[in-house]
């Protein structure tokens, strides 16, 4: 059963919770793949942008993004619609990024070869940063990316991932301490 929405509603994009999005979620829950495809198109840029914070290779970013939407499809029944769908999909994506960071760390040793994807003012500094990040634990990297990369507060991180504020504070404190130690050792 294909959900029929007016063209204007289909063209609407953005993270704002709206009736059209709620209708898309409800239809997706009922198994309407067309509606779910529309949800994907609405949120794919955000998911790619977020995954691109943690992974440099296109295939890794695409992999996490695909897994995010597949997990969303499987777990749509747990979405309670108290918060916008955007928040929920962000949480799913973040948790998958965190899991993949940990899995990649176990599978491979940090590579010394890095290719900065985003334009940096100083390529040498970018490579130094990559080497530094590779020496941090996945948990430290994850928290620092959200704090300094995304610019989120401790409270925002807690809310978006589903951790307690205390948990995030402890992780952030430890991550900063380890980063400081690494920087001091490198001097």
């Amino acid at each position: 059963m294909e959900l029929v929405l007016p063209l204007a509603m289909r063209m609407t994009s953005g993270p704002v919770r709206d009736a059209a999005e709620e209708a898309l979620v409800a239809a997706s829950r009922g198994g309407d793949e067309g509606a779910f495809g529309e949800l994907i198109r609405r949120h794919q840029n955000r998911v790619f942008r977020l995954a691109g914070r943690f992974f440099r290779e296109r295939e890794d970013v695409e992999d996490v993004a695909q897994e995010t939407f597949l997990a969303a499809w499987r777990r749509l029944g747990t979405y309670e619609a108290r918060a916008p769908f955007e928040h929920w999909i962000t949480r799913v994506c973040l948790r998958l990024c965190y899991a993949k960071l940990g899995a990649d760390k176990k599978r491979t040793e940090p590579s010394t070869h890095v290719e900065p994807a985003a334009p940096h003012r100083d390529p040498a500094a970018a490579i130094d940063i990559e080497r530094l990040l590779a020496r941090l634990t996945p948990s430290d990297r994850f928290v620092l990316m959200l704090l300094d990369g995304e610019g989120w507060s401790v409270k925002e991180i807690a809310g978006r991932i589903g951790w307690t504020v205390t948990n995030v504070k402890v992780r952030a404190f430890r991550a900063r301490r380890r980063l400081r130690l690494l920087l001091e050792n490198d001097r």
């Binding site: 942008r49 970018a126 940063i129 530094l132």
Partner: peptide
């Protein structure tokens, strides 16, 4: 490091076929 983390991001965006693949 903070400055570098702010700038660090893979320049990857979804292509037209992404939703279809999912």
């Amino acid at each position: 490091v903070r400055q570098a983390l702010r700038e660090r991001r893979a320049n990857v965006s979804p292509d037209a076929g992404f939703a279809v693949r999912v």
